[in-house]
């Protein structure tokens, strides 16, 4: 029996779709049993969404009324909905717009940036923008999440293979450190360093003062970044038992003698500690809570 699969792209960069293609030769094995019934990033048709979809992969966050409508429409037709990639799973980089609250960001882009000659916020023929960037699960029920910016092709392949053979896929519940080959941290970072201050190879990046989000970030990517000397930026969101990814990492640095992090302004706090998750983070909840009051 062939499995009917659909893919969809919301506010995002199509990078997750590229990652899907990046599965490479193995994709041919997967496609043997699959009928790709709907995929507007790949095939130029948007409507109508066909019925009886078995699995829907939805990339991107929910940024406009249109995104919301399309997600709801897809949910109606699909038995199993997957939030595909960081934006869909946690709000993604787009979520950082929430820092500036509501529509302020849109106004800035259309009236203050050089490229926008008319200095006008468009109102016709464009969907209404939402006050806050949302993740997919904020608008529809999500059955499974594939995290990552972009998701790891091997992980996508193994999840799809599991689904096609009727198994329930799982994500690692551990954090990046579990997969990281670098020498373990044994002393707390004394000072925050930036990546151009080249880290020593083979040594825990966090212990050297580079903000590596590894301890609080979900494993499953084989620690590809830190093992190459690049601190984890946390694209896979919090690991299973982390209360909040960004706050946990803020705490990890609270012991630093130079008390710089207690002076971070919100854009830096969000951009550094919740780069892919701000829209679904406790930091944003706090902001929303205060603004509601």
């Amino acid at each position: 029996m062939t499995v009917r699969i659909a893919t969809m792209g919301m506010a995002g960069c199509s990078g997750c779709h590229i990652a899907l293609l990046d599965i490479g030769v193995k994709l041919l094995d997967i496609l043997k049993d699959v009928e790709l019934v709907y995929s507007y990033p790949l095939v130029d048709t948007k409507n109508p969404i066909p019925p009886n979809i078995d699995v829907a992969l939805i990339e991107g966050s929910i940024r406009t009324e249109h995104d919301k409508e399309m997600a709801e429409a897809m949910r109606k037709q699909a038995k199993f909905v997957i939030a595909f990639g960081a934006c869909s799973a946690h709000g993604g980089v787009n979520g950082l717009a929430n820092v500036f609250g509501g529509k302020q960001g849109v106004e800035y882009v259309y009236t203050k940036t050089i490229l926008m000659a008319q200095k006008l916020v468009p109102s016709e023929h464009v969907p209404q923008i939402l006050t806050n960037d949302l993740r997919l699960s904020d608008v529809v029920k999500v059955d499974f999440v594939i995290p990552g910016c972009p998701p790891n092709p091997d992980e996508i392949a193994s999840i799809l293979t599991a689904l096609l053979s009727g198994e329930t896929p799982t994500l690692s519940s551990k954090s990046i450190c579990d997969e990281c080959p670098l020498e373990r941290l044994t002393e707390a970072p004394a000072k925050l360093r930036r990546i151009h201050e080249i880290p020593e190879p083979d040594k825990c990046l966090l212990s050297q003062g580079f903000l590596c989000m590894g301890p609080a970030t979900r494993a499953g990517c084989n620690a590809e970044c830190p093992r190459r000397g690049m601190p984890c930026t946390g694209c896979r969101g919090p690991s299973e038992t982390v209360w909040d990814q960004g706050v946990a990492m803020l705490d990890a640095l609270a012991a630093m003698e130079e008390d710089e992090i207690s002076d971070f302004k919100l854009p830096r706090l969000a951009g550094t500690f919740a780069r892919y998750t701000y829209a679904s983070s406790k930091l944003d909840n706090l902001r929303k809570g205060v603004q509601k009051e």
């Binding site: 008390d259 207690s262 302004k265």
Partner: peptide
Amino acid sequence: MANSRVQVVRNIINQSGG
């Protein structure tokens, strides 16, 4: 540490408008 953490939390709340 209690002191440092309170400073961090207060900054977060302050930055979030609380």
